[in-house]
Design a protein around this nucleic acid. Structure first.
Lengths: 211, 211
DNA sequence: TAAAAAAAGTGACTTAGGTCATGGTTGAAA
DNA sequence: TTTCAACCATGACCTAAGTCACTTTTTTTA
């Protein structure tokens, strides 16, 4: 029997995955976590063959959890689950050594196929992501993908507020800074994340679950 | 037996709902639609006691489907399903006469409760939405909530591109317009949606599934 | 089909957003 | 202790964004 751990904060998606997985008599969901921290804790107590991790989760996100699991229990297959076609995250997931990258809005069949394929040692990346990601991998470690892990607390804070649609003036008032300072932090954010303006920052913030 | 129709484009969520609903022996999912159009077509062929409609769907969204179902089959209970705490949509849903408003990230228990409550003739609005919405209802028809239904095709198009993080110049080039024209459309959008800048438009576009 | 209304388009003008050069503070390494 | 690096802060300056008054085109409807 293949033991599966699911880490997913949306209970509907959790139930859906569970149901789909257990239609196959070989597979059994023996662990359910609502964030990355819980997932790692479960791995400490029980053995799993496959971990399905949502990228966006509270407490500890799926990428961090994946990293820890890959380091400490390298035999466990890791499948990342995401809502969006975010190639930055896909790259990061691959770098960590995930065995698959699934989109939540894919149909049931291809999700099952991803799971099966992953268990058989395959690597599967769903969506248009693959087309964008593969060329990048071929250019050897590309230097651009600076993830939000490299952001300072101030920057993350400001990024979140941009994602809430606030103006520089509002952010400055809330944080007791001058607008100039806020603008400067934004310039740094734009540079780090390789984006162009606050609108793209807001989109990034939402896509990555900061808001 | 209570017959349930689900309209939901994300198959994972569909499976999750189905599983949860069918843990109760009284309930049975006898219809599955992947968009609003399919939902209405199913209603024409079969009878349902309850329709669970995702607000965000391709082809025809949940609000439109709800409207049609409420008009043509007023005995069917309608439960709206959404990812975000979007009070504009909640209001619109209530105006149409939906019997409930559920958030996808709620836990299984409260989702089941919403369904049960809805079947018993209750009205349930999940999340902080309720607190924002109820006062508005008491002020008699409030004039502000202009939904995206009132947007022209051009405006919707431009709104989507803003949600993709494009600049006015890029949008103008793609649509073969002057930047001035694009700016003007944006001014109209800001006015109609009661927002302040393109960042808030981008957030709106994402929250409402345009991108 | 004429009149009215809605939508699409334009460019001069104002303001908020973003860049850049610079300085202060803290903590760790030499 | 000094030097270096990372973070935070600031304001002068420039550009893209947004407003406004207006014209043209398309669609409604009387």
């Amino acid at each position: 029997m293949i033991r599966v751990l699911i880490a997913e904060d949306q209970s509907l998606v959790m139930q859906g995955l569970k149901m789909m997985i257990e239609t196959d008599s070989e597979l059994k969901v023996t662990g359910e976590a609502r964030n990355g921290k819980e997932a790692v804790e479960l791995c400490e107590k029980n053995w799993f063959d496959l971990a399905i991790l949502d990228i966006r989760m509270p407490e500890m996100d799926g990428l961090e959890a994946a990293k820890i699991i890959r380091e400490r229990w390298p035999e466990i297959k890791v499948l990342m689950l995401t809502t969006f076609n975010d190639d930055e995250y896909a790259l990061e997931a691959l770098r960590i050594g995930a065995h698959g990258y699934m989109l939540k809005d894919a149909d049931a069949d291809s999700l099952i196929k991803s799971i099966k394929n992953c268990l058989n040692g395959g690597l599967h990346i769903q969506g248009e992501v693959a087309a964008k990601v593969v060329p990048r991998l071929l250019e050897k470690e590309n230097p651009s993908p600076k993830l939000h892990h490299t952001l300072t607390p101030r920057e993350t804070d400001i990024l979140r507020r941009i994602g809430e649609g606030k103006s520089n003036k509002e952010i400055a008032e809330e944080l007791a800074l001058s607008v100039g300072t806020v603008k400067n932090h934004i310039s740094v954010l734009l540079d780090k994340l390789d984006l162009r303006d606050r609108t793209q920052l807001a989109i990034f913030a939402i896509r990555n679950g900061l808001v």
